[in-house]
Design a protein around this nucleic acid. Structure first.
Lengths: 145, 145
DNA sequence: ACCTAACTGTTAGATATCAAACTGTCAACA
DNA sequence: TGTTGACAGTTTGATATCTAACAGTTAGGT
């Protein structure tokens, strides 16, 4: 019973997701960030001025989680929030220079870990996998709430 | 920027993992359990007397998490922990009758949601997907710590 | 103008997770 | 028999997540 059978694809999917989260951990922990904080900070560098609602959608979480996550980043002056355009509901979020500097190289590090995880597959197999996953996710619910 | 490109298989993998977690949520919430509590309780019905270390390995988490998770289940008398075999280190964990009753049908419900997620794929495609995922996970680190 | 509904973000309370430090127990070995 | 190291579990303090309830803002309809 120490060797489970793994007949379920979705069990393997969850395992891979876990491994991906783990694999960049050294890089992230060296900067005293959580995985989620790093992801959002990286996203903000590429998409400055995003509103929290969109950040929640992209990071597949809730507005409430984004709110508290950004509080942590704002406390360390890694991001800045302000309202613009005369719309007092939306808060535009920006990475500060310190935040951008801290996260630089994150995407490269993540791409490297992705490559490491997919290493057992050759080019054709990766293409097949991507096609199958797209077929599944096309039918999947979006985390909009 | 509202239509992300998704060139990364691993991004899709994480999305599917998220959807799987969400999909059984109604069933689980009706019983006032968390996803993780339900998983562990179900595991204990099939593997009575497991020790916490093994539960951590199977649920791909840490001994500390299992410790606090089981405290929640024990508070509601859904599981019971006791030492046996004269080994005072290991704590054998059992689902109580109430716990077993509460979780009955869980595995069927989970299997149904798995089927719903994989619905876009036919039998051959599912077999291909499973083979590719096994190839990846064969090289993946185990969450042992 | 006003009312209402939708939208955006926050808070509160619960659970999960992790790392690190700690306690207690067992076993091997001198 | 005593010491030492490995093992199992807990605690602590931080962050993330969820739901539900809440507050302020905007826009639409009458």
């Amino acid at each position: 019973m120490k060797e489970p059978e793994f007949t379920s694809s979705l069990e393997l999917v969850r395992w891979i997701g876990w491994a991906q989260k783990k694999s960049g951990e050294d890089w992230i922990r060296a900067r005293e960030l959580s995985h989620e904080q790093a992801f959002v900070l990286g996203y903000l560098v590429d998409n400055p001025g995003s509103i929290q609602r969109d950040i929640a959608a992209v990071s597949r979480t809730s507005a409430a989680s984004v709110s508290s996550l950004l509080q942590g980043l704002e406390r360390r002056d890694l991001v800045e929030r302000r309202t613009e355009d005369g719309d007092e509901r939306r808060k535009r979020v920006y990475a500060t220079p310190a935040g951008a500097e801290l996260i630089s190289g994150f995407e490269d590090a993540m791409a490297a870990t992705d490559d490491a995880i997919l290493a057992p597959l050759d080019g054709d197999e990766r293409a097949t996998l991507l096609a199958l996953l797209k077929k599944i996710t096309a039918e999947l619910p979006q985390p909009r709430r």
